[in-house]
Amino acid sequence: MDVCLGRRDMVVKHIQRKLQEKSEKHTAELHKLGLIAAKVELPPNVHVLPSTPQFLGMNTILQSPETQQDDFVFYFDRLASILIERALDMTQYIPTSVETPQGNKYLGLNPLGTVSAVAILRGGSCLETALKRSIPDCITGRVLIQTNDASQEPELHYLKLPPRLEEHTSVLLLDPQMSSGGAALMAVRVLLDHGVQESRIVFVTCAAGETGLKRLTAVFPKINVIVGRIEEEGEPRWMEKRYFGC
């Protein structure tokens, strides 16, 4: 019995050591990416919304601690709708023509295929109201990625993706805030592992740190990123708490 317990302890310690080595390697790689990112400009596939008076006004309301939750949700949904509509500019379309009620021909565009979305829980759910207003029949999926407090590594806890996701022409990846980029990196990796082409992924976020954006696009240079504003480095997540009231 003592021999069995000793062997089990050895196995447990071996696994713990390997996990610790993996954690240290991951942290070192993120740090290395941060050093590289600090030396480069934001690439052209990062699309920051212009700071129009309307956009600045909505962000002022959202940032104010005096804003009531009902007002916060209303203006957040407005801002999120702008982000989703901008993301749809990144999807693929094909030329088409229709006959108007006046009998004229209108040359326009139709979506090339299916546009779906995957929300990074729980924050990504904040963007789904705006998503459904823009694409009422949008197919959606979920991933739950949380940061381990001890290792500061992102961990995948839940995954539910739409069937045949790899056949969709565009997949919107939704998360209202991004700091280090760890969760976004893992979420994109999950989509790639399920057959989604990198160039078909559009990451949508209301606010992101510049270093996190550079890390994400350094690892995945073919994705498009739609971001509302660049926030201070290391800003804690707060949008989903204000949105859901808890």
Results as ranks from 00 to 15, higher is better:
134 S>I: 12
138 C>A: 07
158 Y>G: 11
115 V>L: 01
212 G>C: 07
69 Q>N: 05
21 E>Q: 15
143 V>L: 14
50 P>H: 05
82 I>D: 05
56 L>S: 03
79 L>D: 00
221 P>G: 00
216 L>H: 14
21 E>C: 06
165 L>P: 10
159 L>S: 01
15 I>P: 12
52 T>W: 08
31 H>M: 13
91 T>R: 09
99 E>K: 14
218 A>V: 11
3 V>E: 03
128 E>A: 04
199 S>M: 09
114 T>W: 15
158 Y>C: 05
205 T>K: 08
148 N>F: 02
83 L>V: 06
79 L>P: 00
190 V>M: 09
103 G>Y: 11
190 V>K: 04
35 L>V: 07
74 F>E: 00
99 E>P: 10
153 E>Y: 09
167 E>I: 11
149 D>W: 05
211 T>I: 12
201 I>R: 07
104 N>G: 03
203 F>H: 08
146 Q>R: 02
87 A>I: 08
87 A>V: 02
40 V>Y: 12
35 L>F: 14
80 A>D: 05
172 L>I: 09
7 R>W: 03
32 K>A: 02
35 L>W: 15
154 P>G: 09
204 V>I: 13
135 I>V: 03
218 A>N: 07
33 L>S: 07
164 R>L: 06
86 R>N: 10
121 L>W: 12
14 H>M: 12
137 D>L: 05
190 V>D: 12
145 I>S: 04
156 L>A: 06
27 T>R: 13
197 Q>L: 14
78 R>Q: 09
21 E>T: 14
13 K>E: 05
73 V>F: 01
41 E>H: 13
174 L>Q: 09
94 I>C: 10
80 A>Y: 05
148 N>T: 05
73 V>K: 09
126 C>H: 00
147 T>S: 14
220 F>C: 02
100 T>L: 09
242 R>K: 09
194 H>L: 11
227 V>R: 15
46 V>H: 06
99 E>Y: 12
93 Y>W: 06
8 R>C: 03
90 M>W: 11
140 T>C: 09
148 N>H: 07
88 L>P: 05
237 R>L: 03
225 V>Y: 01
82 I>F: 04
154 P>Q: 06
211 T>E: 14
125 S>C: 03
136 P>G: 04
24 E>L: 10
126 C>N: 05
150 A>Q: 13
126 C>T: 01
188 V>W: 01
207 A>M: 15
113 G>W: 11
49 L>H: 07
219 V>Y: 10
10 M>C: 14
116 S>C: 13
59 N>C: 03
100 T>A: 06
28 A>E: 04
116 S>T: 13
136 P>Y: 05
97 S>Y: 08
117 A>K: 03
151 S>G: 00
61 I>Q: 01
218 A>P: 08
126 C>I: 00
189 R>E: 14
214 K>G: 13
47 H>C: 14
55 F>H: 02
144 L>A: 13
230 I>M: 15
95 P>W: 12
214 K>H: 10
118 V>W: 10
26 H>I: 03
116 S>Y: 08
44 P>Q: 13
111 P>K: 04
96 T>S: 05
196 V>G: 11
83 L>Q: 00
55 F>T: 04
196 V>L: 06
11 V>P: 08
99 E>N: 13
214 K>R: 11
68 Q>G: 02
89 D>H: 04
